[in-house]
Design a binder for these strands. Structure first.
Lengths: 192, 192
DNA sequence: GCATCTATTCCTACTAGTAGGTAGTCTAAG
DNA sequence: CTTAGACTACCTACTAGTAGGAATAGATGC
């Protein structure tokens, strides 16, 4: 029923946020990508805040779905984290949304409108929560060894993945993401 | 001899970049903070790119000086890294430039003018290089145990610190930076 | 079958405000 | 009497957002 123009606009916005951040793109940029006029975007998303919030809501929904998918289809929790990392590695190598938009927006956070701030926070909370429970599952399952509390290990894992995205972007080398994230996964193995 | 207005402008720019990123601040913002008119800034820094590059050059000079200071005054390499992390912890707790501007700008990198890109890259290279040689020194000194290569461990350390800055900003809790960085340092100890 | 009503979607044309940057002037100090 | 540093006044380009009209398509009444 719903036209997919709104979807196209939201996806274009996601791409542009991933490339340039909140202040780095305009309605004109979105209009050019989608192939419609600037004013038409306002019909679907009255304000820029609405558009970015919509992109973040969709982004989180996708993440939740992917996490649930991993939880139900992959037995080994360590393998789930490996697949999570692998997903980002592919995005970075293909230059396809090669960074988490919530992580990117968190950098600009103090300047962002409150509704966007709230969505970014929700993403961080959900992601850290999923990693934490996955780490706990892995400890029980026997494939993961936790040096510190699950909470601290989860926050560290999220941080190192986000930091690795920044380094890969800064240095222009996807390899640096690969080696950092491999090391982060390796460190969770009980054989150490 | 040189007026300190230029310094004030550069410092105001640094603060604003740390708060909002490259596209998130304007000459008008800088003018208001410094207490001069917009046009006067152009006298000292002809373009916004010049201003931001100057801020990054100064930022890196300060980092190099601080690193050399640590190298000469602190015997234990692990302690040097601890002090590096502590510096950022204080910045975050006092909300005083609570994020590395190079890390922040790396998020917006694809949209940044080339001269700024280059400065951001230089920062990442120098920082990773310093951490790497500090890790090697620590391994020789005996206070640091390296699980992987010094290169990978250094990149991981840089990434986790940057990621922790993002998490602290996103969640609004300095504590999360503290616990992540403590865990990162702890992991380097040979007692494990 | 055909006209009409309604809602959706996109358009052109516009607004007020802000962006970075420029031209030219005034002032004070060496 | 030149120069540095600040100013007023302005420019063009772009920002998010608005007003109102044209085209489309689906449902309804006769």
């Amino acid at each position: 029923m719903s036209s997919n123009t709104a979807d196209k606009i939201r996806e274009a916005a996601h791409d542009l946020i991933a490339a340039r951040g909140y202040f780095g793109f305009s309605y004109a940029d979105v209009a050019e990508v989608v192939g419609i006029r600037k004013a038409s975007i306002h019909h679907h998303f009255p304000s820029k805040v609405d558009l970015v919030v919509a992109a973040l809501v969709q982004y989180r929904a996708d993440m939740v779905a992917a996490a649930k998918g991993l939880d139900s289809k992959v037995v080994d929790p360590l393998q789930r984290l490996k697949l999570y990392v692998q997903h980002w590695e592919e995005c970075i190598r293909n230059s396809n949304r090669p960074i988490c938009i919530a992580a990117l927006l968190s950098a600009e956070l103090p300047a962002l409108p409150d509704p966007i701030k709230a969505e970014v926070q929700l993403h961080f909370r959900y992601l850290a929560g999923w990693v934490k429970s996955t780490l706990r599952d892995g400890a029980k399952y026997g494939s993961i060894h936790l040096e510190h509390s699950a909470e601290v290990e989860a926050q560290s894992f999220v941080a190192v993945v986000h930091g690795a995205m920044l380094s890969a972007r800064a240095l222009g080398t996807p390899d640096v993401f690969t080696s950092i994230s491999k090391a982060a996964l390796d460190r969770l193995r009980p054989s150490n």
